[in-house]
């Protein structure tokens, strides 16, 4: 079975390490915050200027001056700090964020990512995504492996305008956990009950399968 949004988030959360500063993008990445292992501490960075994002506020705690990058009302965790947007992107561009998780429309074997614009449709903008992919060394892209019509989103070459070039090394889809290196996809894990053949069929770019591919543990 393909992973649900929650299960994708759950698997990403296993990549978190104690003491990590993490930036979570909008959508599935945001859900990762719900699955932080109990025995580690991570701090969430929100690029609008908050390090140490807490949970959503109660009705009584709502503060119009305290939102995350998705414009949702949030709270501050213990030890949080606030700062301006230039400082926020100094952290991001300067490589100080340990892990970035964000969504995408397409990725390709060269680590290119397209995530912000579909020509001909409404163009909303890249927000902070271009800075995040350019600045982070450790990025996990979360996405569906293929469209509803079975068209692969893991490509030889991205067809849509790029958000970043050669910057993606790890992709977690609803079917597989994949590493990108030396111009190829490398299959690391498969979703429970999903066969290697299914993954190969839905991957347009070259994919390397070495030995037995383990199922993800959730």
């Amino acid at each position: 079975m393909a992973l649900s949004r929650e299960q994708i988030a759950q698997r990403v959360a296993q990549e978190l390490k104690d003491g990590y500063y993490v930036n979570l993008g909008i959508g599935i990445p945001t859900l990762v915050a719900n699955y932080v292992p109990q025995d580690i501490e991570v701090m969430l960075q929100s690029e609008n200027g908050l390090l140490g994002m807490g949970q959503f506020p109660t009705e009584d705690e709502i503060d119009a001056d305290l939102i995350n990058a998705g414009k949702q009302t949030v709270t501050m965790a213990n030890g949080a700090s606030v700062f301006d947007s230039a400082e926020s992107f100094a952290m991001i561009r300067g490589g100080h964020v340990d892990l970035t998780v964000l969504g995408a429309f397409e990725v390709d074997v060269n680590g290119n990512i397209a995530s912000y614009m579909i020509p001909g449709k409404l163009i909303k903008g890249m927000g902070g995504a271009m800075d995040l992919v350019a600045g982070a060394d450790n990025i996990i892209v979360t996405m569906t492996h293929a469209s509803k019509h079975g068209v692969s989103k893991l490509l030889k070459n991205c067809a849509l305008p790029l958000t970043g070039k050669g910057c993606i090394k790890k992709v977690l889809t609803d079917l597989a956990f994949i590493e990108i290196k030396e111009g190829k996809f490398h299959l690391l894990e498969r979703a429970p009950g999903v066969s290697v053949e299914e993954i190969i069929k839905l991957t347009e770019g070259e994919i390397v399968v070495t030995g037995d591919i383990p199922e993800m543990k959730l």
């Binding site: 949970q55 959503f56 506020p57 109660t58 009705e59 009584d60 705690e61 709502i62 119009a64 001056d65 939102i67 998705g70 414009k71 949702q72 009302t73 949030v74």
Partner: peptide, 15 residues
């Protein structure tokens, strides 16, 4: 006015 774009909350008992 300080309008809120995405009003997201959690239940207060969980709090």
């Amino acid at each position: 006015e300080k309008r809120i774009e995405q009003r997201t909350t959690r239940p207060s008992d969980m709090h």
